[in-house]
C-alpha cells in the first residue's frame, strides 16, 4: 500500500514538472521587440455615469505601497492624476487677404477663433505677429496708434478715421449665431471700433480670456477677429505680408 502511494506521488510530480506547459500569456515578442508584463490590467481609464465619475486601473497584482531604503513603490494606484478633460481650439480661416492696399481706405479681413475648455476652467488666448506687414524689399507698414489715445499692445482705442494709418486688430466675442456678446473680449476691446497693434513678443498679448466657462463641460466660446490695414499716399505700393500666431491655453 505504501509502495502504491509513493508511486502515485512520483507520477504526480513527474506529470506536474514535465507535462505542464509554461503559460506565455503575459509575454509578447516579435522580430523587433519583447514585452513582458508583470501583470495584466483588466480594465483602466475614465468611466462616468449620470452621477459618478471614476478613474481606475484594475488587475494590478499586490496593490499598495512598498517601502525600502532608497525607494518607494506605489503599485496599483494612479499616482499621476491628469485631468482627462480635453481642450479644443480652432481658427476658421488662416489666409487673411487684405487685398490691394489703397491709400486712406482701410482694408480689413476677418476670421473666427473658437475655444472649448473643461468645465469650470477658463482660458487665455494670446496673439503675436512675427513681424510688421513687410514687403519683400523690407519696407514695412507700421503698427497703428489708433485715432487718439494712443492705442498700444495692452490698451485699445478707437480707430475709425481714414487719416489714421497702420496695422492693427480687434477681437469681439460673438455667439454661435454671430451676434456680438463681448464675452471674453470686453476687457480688452470695448466694441468693434477699438483696435490695438500686434505685439511681436511671444505668447504675451492677451486677445481673449475668461475665468471660467459656463455650465456644461467643454462649452464653446467664439470671437471674431478683424485685421485692419490703412496706408498713406506715401506708402510704397506692393504686396505686404506677415504671420499671426494665436496661442490658446487653459487657466490653471
Amino acid at each position: 500500500m505504501k509502495f502504491k502511494i509513493v508511486i502515485f506521488l512520483l507520477l504526480l510530480t513527474f506529470n506536474f514538472q514535465l507535462l505542464t506547459r509554461v503559460a506565455h500569456a503575459q509575454h509578447f515578442s516579435s522580430t523587433d521587440y519583447i514585452i513582458d508584463f508583470g501583470n495584466f490590467n483588466i480594465t483602466s481609464g475614465h468611466k462616468n455615469s449620470a452621477n459618478y465619475s471614476l478613474t481606475d486601473t484594475v488587475g494590478q497584482l499586490a496593490p499598495g505601497q512598498y517601502n525600502n531604503t532608497g525607494y518607494i513603490v506605489k503599485a496599483g494606484f494612479q499616482y499621476i492624476y491628469d485631468l482627462f478633460n480635453q481642450f479644443t481650439f480652432s481658427i476658421n480661416n488662416l489666409s487673411l487677404s487684405l487685398g490691394d492696399l489703397v491709400p486712406n481706405i482701410g482694408s480689413t479681413a476677418t476670421n473666427i477663433i473658437s475655444i472649448s475648455t473643461p468645465s469650470g476652467h477658463g482660458y487665455q488666448i494670446m496673439v503675436q505677429q512675427n513681424h510688421s506687414l513687410t514687403q519683400g524689399n523690407g519696407i514695412t507698414i507700421p503698427s497703428t496708434a489708433c485715432d487718439s489715445g494712443p492705442c498700444t499692445t495692452t490698451t485699445s482705442a478707437p480707430w475709425t478715421l481714414a487719416s489714421t494709418y497702420g496695422f492693427g486688430f480687434n477681437v469681439i466675442g460673438i455667439n454661435s449665431s454671430g451676434v456680438v456678446t463681448g464675452v471674453g473680449t470686453s476687457n480688452y476691446f470695448t466694441n468693434s471700433t477699438y483696435f490695438r497693434p500686434f505685439s511681436t513678443a511671444p505668447i504675451s498679448q492677451i486677445a481673449m480670456s475668461e475665468n471660467n466657462s459656463t455650465s456644461g463641460a467643454n462649452s464653446l466660446r467664439q470671437a471674431r477677429v478683424t485685421y485692419k490695414a490703412n496706408v498713406s499716399a506715401i506708402q510704397a505700393a506692393g504686396r505686404y505680408e506677415n504671420g499671426i500666431i494665436f496661442t490658446a491655453v487653459p487657466k490653471y
Partner: peptide, 9 residues
Amino acid sequence: SQSAASGRI
C-alpha cells in the same frame, strides 16, 4: 497683401 494665421494649443 495678406496675413497668414496659425494656431498653437
